[in-house]
Design a protein around this nucleic acid. Structure first.
Lengths: 114, 114
DNA sequence: TCAGTATGTTATAAAAATATAACATGTCAA
DNA sequence: TTGACATGTTATATTTTTATAACATACTGA
């Protein structure tokens, strides 16, 4: 399935807790690379930049420049695309499973009460 | 954020295209390990089993046994949880961005037509 | 201009994920 | 029982990811 492969860099980008934390930061407001390094003071600046590169390559971070500063903006569209085009089927699967479980429990209760 | 860490094994499990392909298979119907190996004939049986272990540890695959067969069932609930508890904020972010973009384009068109 | 600052690049060490091989266990059915 | 089969386990090679260091570039403002 081609759509599955399209999503690959996005899933990979989301796979690291540090990167999800960076996204959480950028969800609140755009930040400079330096600002992010300050926020994640336990992480080397180069590490932050590598994570930003992964996020950028996945299209989850958009970069603008102001003088010598680099502003990193969240682009949540790829995440929404995954939600719309990939997760839907699985969510349905889960809901079906839950409702059949509910039905089975219902039958059991019925049986017990009769 | 603690919820972020709870999701870690799930995001990690979803990060590999082969594992997502396995989930796609199991979404259609439960399969034995052997059945999966037959389907992914270009992958070593041990590799399939390792992937199944990752999926199982993440709670995405539930295992039942029948004699010498092991049946792997999809459990999509963790995916639905991510959808409900993690993706929501980002989807909203995306929608907000799109609507502000729309508004800006609307303003531009207005300007152009006046 | 020039010191200080923000970011970029290249190389490399360390850790984790992926794939395979070799061997082990348990079940079925003749 | 016993041979074939489905799965499980342990060890290890290969590849990728993650983290850091050292050096380079470019902008700002005094």
């Amino acid at each position: 399935m081609s759509t599955n492969d399209d999503f690959d860099p996005i899933f990979k980008a989301l796979a690291h807790a540090r990167r999800r934390a960076i996204l959480d930061c950028l969800k609140k407001e755009p930040m400079t690379t330096g600002g992010l390094c300050q926020h994640f003071h336990d992480m080397d600046r180069c590490t932050v930049m590598q994570h930003l590169k992964v996020l950028h390559d996945a299209g989850l971070v958009v970069v603008t420049r102001e003088g010598r500063e680099r502003w990193n903006h969240l682009n949540a569209l790829p995440i929404k695309e995954i939600a719309d085009r990939w997760i839907g089927d699985y969510a349905q699967h889960a809901v079906r499973m839950l409702s059949s479980l509910e039905r089975d429990l219902g039958l059991r209760n019925k049986k017990e009460t009769t």
